[in-house]
Nucleic acid binder design. Structure first.
Lengths: 158, 158
DNA sequence: CTGGTCCGCAACTACACTGGTTGCAGTTGA
DNA sequence: TCAACTGCAACCAGTGTAGTTGCGGACCAG
């Protein structure tokens, strides 16, 4: 249905989770519990984040994924580009008729407009870091449960 | 390819074509030649534009679609909303685990960020009118063929 | 060096959306 | 009445997504 797949939302979720558990590697099985999906789905997305240099992954006992950079240095645009590789706007499925003046020139005009609109969306994502997302999540926890919330006391998935 | 479907590009194409041939109704068959697709595909998109009040359609001999408003009063955001009804960003396919603090609060944070990014993209579309698109197309025609190009002399599809 | 823990990848399924196509009913105007 | 249109339903092929299973391989502790 939607145009930007849920991979982006899940990727941000994973990185926020790693920010919280920053001192230890996070296994795909554990974080899959938080995301409520299959560990393989998590590993696919973690693989994209690894290819983009955002996380580092360690196999074996005690392994898992960890942030490869400070969370204040990872923007949502970095995450978006890591997991979504297609252009935001599609041109005509078939190239339009080049013999008429509208068909022959509309795509060039559209490309300019589409580029501006895509860039505007990306600029908004670029202004938000993973650390800010994590802090917003933490602020919501405190708002709901004002007495006991400390960063180290966040609840893990069941 | 999770992108904004080509319906949007085709819809802008149709409206630019109607701006050019503004004095007469445009049949789905003729404009399908310019777009290089099937007349039924055109009618589907024209139907969405009609539902949004952007064009008026007349059946029967000599019928077709015409702009229902001045082209300077139709923005690309109007067109986008007419043909694309899904949200730009998807949240998790399955709701995340509500028992852990990250899973229980990440979606609210994401919704805020997604709304800002979507709005930034839409604001860019809102700043462009169909008339501007048509004039950009016409400017490209003149740039390619400086001697003979007049608005009334634009070439129709074969 | 062996076994348990973890990742990576390939393959497969179910589902949904898109663009394209055909067929047909209904409306309109000459 | 007839021809030219639209509107709509149905279907197809192609493609992307999320989910799932299975297996090979890397790593570390004992």
């Amino acid at each position: 249905m939607p145009t930007i797949s849920s991979r982006f939302a899940v990727a941000v979720h994973l990185l926020a989770y790693m920010t919280w558990r920053r001192s230890e590697p996070v296994t795909s099985e554990r974080v899959a519990g938080s995301v409520n999906t299959n560990p393989v789905v998590v590993r696919r997305i973690v693989g994209a984040l690894r290819n983009a240099g955002l996380v580092s992954v360690q196999p074996g006992v005690g392994g898992g994924a960890q942030l490869a950079r400070d969370p204040e240095g990872i923007t949502l645009l970095d995450v978006y580009r890591a997991v979504e590789d297609d252009a935001l706007f599609a041109l005509h499925a078939q190239p339009p008729c080049g013999h008429c003046d509208v068909g022959g020139n509309i795509q060039g005009v559209l490309q300019e407009v589409f580029a501006r609109a895509s860039r505007a969306m990306e600029a908004e994502l670029e202004g938000v870091t993973i650390l800010q997302v994590f802090e917003s999540v933490f602020a919501r926890v405190r708002a709901r449960c004002p007495q006991g919330a400390e960063e180290g006391a966040l609840r893990r998935p069941a």
